[in-house]
């Protein structure tokens, strides 16, 4: 099981709802819906389905929830493997 802290992530938005994350990610042309529990970067994503993630170049943007701090929108660069895995699901 992985840990977000091991990734070179950037916080795009903090303390948001899943609806706000979905609305923000609507601006990206390439986006995918994943189900709760989907494994990315060795992390199981939690959230209210459908959980939207978006591709921006070689970066992946997705919501990440911490029990005491709420939901953040995270950008992880150099995510080519995970992006390829998402594309192969489509």
């Amino acid at each position: 099981m992985g840990c977000l802290e091991s990734l070179p992530y950037e916080v795009v938005l903090s303390k948001i709802s899943f609806r706000e994350a979905r609305e923000f990610l609507a601006r990206y042309p390439e986006k995918y819906d994943i189900e709760p529990g989907y494994r990315m970067f060795d992390i199981h994503i939690v959230g209210v389905p459908p959980i939207r993630v978006a591709v921006d170049g070689d970066s992946l943007l997705f919501p990440f929830t911490k029990p005491c701090h709420g939901t953040f929108l995270i950008r992880v660069p150099n995510a080519t493997d995970e992006i390829a895995r998402l594309r192969s699901r489509a």
């Binding site: 709802s17 899943f18 189900e35 709760p36 529990g37 939690v46 959230g47 209210v48 389905p49 929830t65 911490k66 029990p67 005491c68 701090h69 709420g70 939901t71």
Partner: peptide
């Protein structure tokens, strides 16, 4: 809000 996420995840999983 985080608790809602976990409840939705438990329901889904």
């Amino acid at each position: 809000d985080a608790g809602i996420s976990y409840a939705a995840t438990m329901q889904s999983l």
